[in-house]
Design a protein around this nucleic acid. Structure first.
Lengths: 182, 182
DNA sequence: GCAAAAAGAAACAGATCTGTACACCTCAAT
DNA sequence: ATTGAGGTGTACAGATCTGTTTCTTTTTGC
């Protein structure tokens, strides 16, 4: 079973890293916000970078599981599931402390300074791509189209950060219908 | 005329901010790399945040001018110009020290800590949108489609950071032909 | 040639950062 | 009852960060 303190530390760290950024969030802040002693923090994670990696790894597996179970529970064709995925962006972008895509943000801050983080972000994106390919296959579409859907999805997350993107999401849904027409 | 030191400082700062991130790049580093004395730096820019804003403002106007002049010089229909814009991503993503979209990165790091920076990023994106709308209008297309093109463009810049996106760019070009078919 | 403006060098203040050391506490299993 | 693992609290080391101060040097306009 996972130690509750460790899990709580990951919760606090993820929230702060996501909202304020990785370099801008100090260990002291995570310590103060979580209420867990600094000694305990460093007993669970050897360094800040190790904590960041742990946060990203946990977030990645959680998101994968969420997407898997949600689309499994959701009856409908592959294309309906894809559209639902993009419609979910509406609520995601209006969440409190929304700040785009966690993995995109991480990759931006550690592009050349921490290859492990960049790689992890890349793996998450590649999984997303494979996930979209699976949905497309169900419908008999060419899996190539996943290479268009993923940038659209990421791009909307990016745009929503600096402007109201509800209309952009709607227009993207229209475009998807055109794009995925047989 | 612009002071050469000031311009040189902006050059160095932009390169470092873009490659390594804003919080990760210290003033000392910019000072050392540029060879300009710290005193001079602070005589031209009141603070690091002011320097960041100046970097982003200059980059935004430069990119706008580049896009304007390039598409003006380029003969062809609006759709051909749009496709050329996306084809340019190939070389952009392979540039040395490529790290996605500068304004996307800035918005991520200062989303909740510096509204001015976030706003500036938003204005740049809105200009990009208006620019795409103009190209679409030339062709008689609905300007709504700019709200799809922009996320695709930004998304490709984001994806290219963590994986080879040359194929994704190609598939996006295919999709654009489908999407902009009459 | 000279005065004024711009730039340089280097030390420094004060805050913050990551990470460690050390002494103490709590509490469950043996 | 004791031991040992996990947790706490705090102080600290050492680096780095932004920004300032002080003094000297260089450049420039007249």
């Amino acid at each position: 079973m996972p130690t509750p303190r460790r899990e709580h530390l990951l919760d606090t760290a993820e929230q702060l890293f996501y909202r304020d950024g990785f370099h801008a969030t100090g260990i002291d802040r995570i310590q103060a916000e979580s209420g867990v002693a600094k000694t305990t923090l460093y007993k669970h994670f050897q360094s800040k970078d190790a904590l960041i990696l742990a946060v990203l790894e946990r977030a990645s597996t959680r998101i994968r599981e969420e997407l898997e179970t949600r689309t499994a529970a959701q009856a409908g064709t592959g294309i309906q599931r894809i559209l639902a995925l993009f419609e979910d962006l509406h609520s995601i972008c209006e969440e409190n402390d929304f700040n785009g895509c966690l993995f995109n943000n991480a990759a931006a801050e550690f592009m050349y300074s921490n290859p492990a983080i960049r790689t992890l972000a890349g793996e998450h994106m590649r999984w997303m791509q494979a996930f979209l390919e699976r949905l497309l296959e169900e419908e008999g579409f060419s899996t190539d189209k996943a290479l268009v859907l993923l940038p659209m999805y990421e791009g909307l997350l990016t745009l929503a950060r600096v402007q109201d993107s509800s209309v952009a999401i709607e227009r993207t849904l229209d475009a998807l219908v055109t794009l995925l027409a047989p």
